[in-house]
Design a protein around this nucleic acid. Sequence first.
DNA 1: GTCGTTGCAAAGCGTTTGCAGCCTA
DNA 2: TAGGCTGCAAACGCTTTGCAACGAC
Lengths: 135, 135
Amino acid sequence: MQRKTQQRKTRQRKTQQRAAIRRAFERADRPLSPQEVLAAAQGDQPGLGIATVYRNVKAFVERGWLRSVGLPGVPDRYEVAGKDHHHHFHCRTCDGVFEVDACPGGVETISPAGFEVESHEIILYGVCESCAAAV
Amino acid sequence: MQRKTQQRKTRQRKTQQRAAIRRAFERADRPLSPQEVLAAAQGDQPGLGIATVYRNVKAFVERGWLRSVGLPGVPDRYEVAGKDHHHHFHCRTCDGVFEVDACPGGVETISPAGFEVESHEIILYGVCESCAAAV
DNA sequence: GTCGTTGCAAAGCGTTTGCAGCCTA
DNA sequence: TAGGCTGCAAACGCTTTGCAACGAC
């Protein structure tokens, strides 16, 4: 068992906006950018603002429900936390990001002597399944 | 033999600023951020502006002398082009980026069925040699 | 009623661009 | 002298923050 690493200072209220943002992640089976979250959540909450998305995503990350996925050159994506070690696929066509539930292993061994590897990230680039099928 | 992929529209002049920026990359044995280039080149050209760094780095990339290295969450780095396939190490302590002249191989095989992999990127995180030695 | 939350607009930040003067050829 | 180049400042796009109104409890 693990204790929550982040202690809440005050009670969090249940709002329509936050619920809509949470649903956007639960429905998506892949990491989402703030803009993607906004577009998805506005289906439920038309008046939703981008600032609210940023604030809630940040809060979810602090509470450990979301995890940020950094990618070169594009805005960070966010995915539901708690999954096993995995990597990501970035589609050059639709710009979507997908999970890759595997790791080649032995990645740390390519590090030069004297460098202490703590973690690693692998990003695959190409065309995703639906974009490839859409040809 | 290869031909220049980028055709120059006009003749490029030899300026002190551009020379200082080029030297910064030649002296560094690792990818540099625009700010690192500025700091290094200002040793030769104190009045150098950041806009000039951005303009010249972009021009070098277009001419094929530099290559951009995208990394999650931090500004792009730039390295002298033409090297063999390699990856990068991002030091969490000094924020410096270093080359890793190796690749585990077989990375594309972790991709899910239906996804077409065109390229990949591997980033190692940890403590670089000099930071580790500085403890 | 309290005070966490929201939308809007302004502020930050890193990067790009417009412009007048500078300097290479 | 011509026109590419530079520094400065304004413009940009994305993210964060200030603030007054809103609404969950």
